[in-house]
Design a protein around this nucleic acid. Structure first.
Lengths: 173, 173
DNA sequence: GTGGTTTTTCAGAAATTCCTGAAAGATCGA
DNA sequence: TCGATCTTTCAGGAATTTCTGAAAAACCAC
């Protein structure tokens, strides 16, 4: 039995470590990704101290990243009767996770881009030189495309899981 | 005339600066994003020295990031008759840019994730404890979803622009 | 070959991001 | 109100990423 426990611990530790390393690529910091991995695979909600102990990190670090994950909506705070400490539990549904991440990425990556493109397209609207026209055109094309992507992202994110799969299956066939 | 030229220069400089700042969010470094912005809006191909002068950066920095952009496929090297220096020109078609970025992101973000999930699902396959089953299940669900996303990404990236728009329009209607 | 030009590399500096640890601030029961 | 417990903040330090500048390598015409 202890052997199976070992295998599980090993697999889980590996998942946490590797997922943390991947987090960097995804533009979130290592600790945040590790905490997310840890809680996604935790059978029960954990406290800040549990997380500190498991990942060997400081209280400040654990606290900041736990709250950040709560702000994203990837974790929930759980209050237990007769317990003063806060417990944290992860959203485990993959479609939910996906929509949360998609929304956040849209907010941080797509919307600022749109704002810039809008502004630059506007500022160059009335320039009549060939270079000016070319610039304006390029801004418009980018703006149109990014705006389009933004709308798509909204649509997909707000779909029910089943519907999205249905659509995707059609696309893949 | 000079007034229009000023307006264009101003708009373009702003685009380069802001796009550079955005690059950070997108997980590429500021300089790389700035160079990309500069060349996407350049009427003619530029040399390394042009880029150094425009962005006020060192030769090493300019060189490294130009080559990186060429490796991505976002820039092309242009050789001019009677010129020894290399000139660089950007891919300006938005759909092309999108597919290139999508492919690169898939390679850097999705594929490593799949590899990890695969490994962890495999390692926990035979564990029979309830915790082990739960872990294995979670890995499988993530694996399935990410694999699915990977295939979708491939499909969309390899579409012709028109087809993608057609599909998307249907989705948006 | 030689001299002049352009490209490439890379060690160390600069900038940015992330983490720690401790102190201050809340919360709560008695 | 007090003491105990838990949460939050943040200055300074550590780690990571990015950039510079100069030297080396590659290239080319003569």
């Amino acid at each position: 039995m202890s052997e199976e426990g070992d295998k599980l611990t090993k697999a889980r530790d590996e998942f946490v470590a590797q997922w943390g390393a991947l987090g960097t690529q995804w533009g979130i910091n290592r600790t945040m990704a590790q905490i997310h991995a840890l809680l996604m695979t935790a059978p029960l909600p954990l406290t800040t101290d549990d997380v500190m102990a498991e990942l060997q990190i400081s209280r400040g670090n654990a606290h900041t990243n736990l709250k950040e994950l709560v702000a994203w909506g990837l974790l929930r705070v759980v209050v237990k009767k007769g317990e003063r400490r806060e417990f944290f539990e992860a959203e485990k549904d993959v479609w939910q996770i996906f929509t949360i991440v998609a929304r956040e990425r849209k907010r941080r990556e797509i919307e600022p881009a749109l704002a810039i493109l809008n502004k630059c397209a506007e500022e160059s609207r009335e320039i009549t030189t060939p270079e000016g026209r070319a610039f304006h055109d390029q801004m418009r094309q980018l703006e149109d495309f990014v705006g389009f992507a933004s709308k798509m992202s909204d649509r997909v994110s707000s779909m029910k899981h089943g519907l999205a799969v249905q659509l995707a299956t059609k696309l893949l066939s």
